[in-house]
Simulated assay, not measured.
Amino acid sequence: MEKSANGEKMLPADYDKLDYEEIKDRLCITLHSKEQRIEQLKGNLSMDIEGTDLTAAIRIFTGKKDNENGYFGIEPRYLETWGKTLEEVYQQALQNMPRLFPLRIMEMDEMIGRLIFGLDDVEQDSESLEIEFEPYKMYVLSNDTKTDGAAAILYPGLLEKLASNMQSNIFILPSSEHETLLTKDTGEISARDWQSVVIQANQQLFSQDILSDEVYCYDYQEHMLKMVTDPEQTKELRAQLQQMCCCVDATGANTQEYEEEDYGEEQ
């Protein structure tokens, strides 16, 4: 097993001799923040997602075990070996995704209920999917293993179909690298408002699971995915929320100390 300098499992050297046709049906992608994962993805074949701060790492799927997905990373030099362009390999990986990692999308309350009662997910087909978002409700989008499921937002035609069904834009909140939250853009809640939710939720995650602090939107009229928050303003908002959090923590500590003093006097 070969590994890159950052520990990424890479395609073994003898795969130079492997025909592209033999591995093309196992090509897949995982979705990451370009900035946060820059070191880990260094030397790995990847495609930046236009108009966002995200990048799709292109990998070879090796199998599933205990709801974990196995991959080999691919070095860019294999493009020359296979006689393929980055775009060709990326598009092949995208086409494979719904088959390798069937999507799962459900309203958040339903998902929580299924978790509580131990119910299995309902199998869904991205091509025949019929779902229309109710205003103000959140829908969880992932895959069948709930691992690396954020990549489902790139499944061919999925966001376009969902947005077309409701004739509305869709806000996409990056819950983690494993899932995203989708909600109908009613025009009443701004991207900035949703971003506060995203940043505060990310503060509860392990750093390796964070996808982004930005908010995205699928525009059903322009037929495109785009980032609708500004990275510079994101830094300011993140600092404001962290300061508020520190103030709350300090207030809580002072309150606890005061209560302990009162309790001591009563004793």
Results as ranks from 00 to 15, higher is better:
Glu188Thr: 13
Tyr71Asp: 02
Ser207Arg: 12
Gln200Met: 13
Met10Thr: 12
Glu236Ala: 13
Val198Ser: 07
Lys161Ala: 01
Gln221Met: 14
Ile105Ala: 01
Gly51Asn: 03
Thr52Ala: 01
Asp230Asn: 14
Leu119Arg: 13
Ser126Met: 01
Arg192Pro: 04
Thr186Phe: 14
Trp82Pro: 11
Ile199Ala: 00
Pro102Phe: 03
Tyr90Cys: 08
Gln36Thr: 00
Glu188Ser: 13
Asp109Met: 02
Leu158Ile: 09
Met111Ser: 05
Lys24Met: 04
Leu241Ser: 03
Met227Ser: 03
Asp109Trp: 00
Phe171Pro: 11
Asp209Pro: 05
Ile131Trp: 12
Glu2Tyr: 07
Pro156Lys: 06
Leu27Thr: 09
Gln200Ile: 11
Gln167Asn: 13
Ile112Glu: 02
Phe206Arg: 09
Gly264Leu: 10
Ile60Val: 13
Ser46Ala: 15
Ala201Met: 07
Leu27Gly: 08
Thr183Glu: 11
Ile116Cys: 06
Ser207Ala: 15
Gln208Ala: 12
Ser196His: 05
Gln242Glu: 15
Gln195Asn: 07
Asp25Cys: 01
Ile29Cys: 13
Asn67Asp: 15
Ile74Lys: 06
Asp148Val: 00
Ile23Asp: 01
Lys24Arg: 13
Ala250Ser: 04
Gln221Ser: 10
Glu266Ser: 08
Asp262Val: 02
Gln92Ser: 00
Glu257Asp: 02
Asn254Ala: 12
Leu41Lys: 03
Thr62Glu: 13
Ile189Trp: 10
Ala13Leu: 07
Asn6Lys: 09
Ile49Gly: 01
Val197Phe: 12
Lys137Thr: 11
Glu123Trp: 11
Leu158Arg: 08
Gly118Val: 02
Asp249Lys: 14
Arg59Glu: 08
Lys161Gly: 01
Phe171Gly: 10
Asn96Val: 06
Glu68Ser: 14
Arg114Met: 10
Asp249Val: 11
Leu41Val: 00
Glu88Asn: 10
Gln195Ala: 07
Asp185Ser: 06
Ser46Phe: 06
Glu107Asp: 03
Lys226Glu: 08
Ser190Leu: 10
Ser176Lys: 03
Asp121Gln: 12
Tyr216Cys: 03
Ala152Asn: 10
Leu237Cys: 06
Phe117Pro: 03
Pro76His: 05
Leu18Cys: 02
Lys34Glu: 11
Val215Trp: 07
Ile74Gln: 08
Lys17Thr: 11
Tyr220Ser: 01
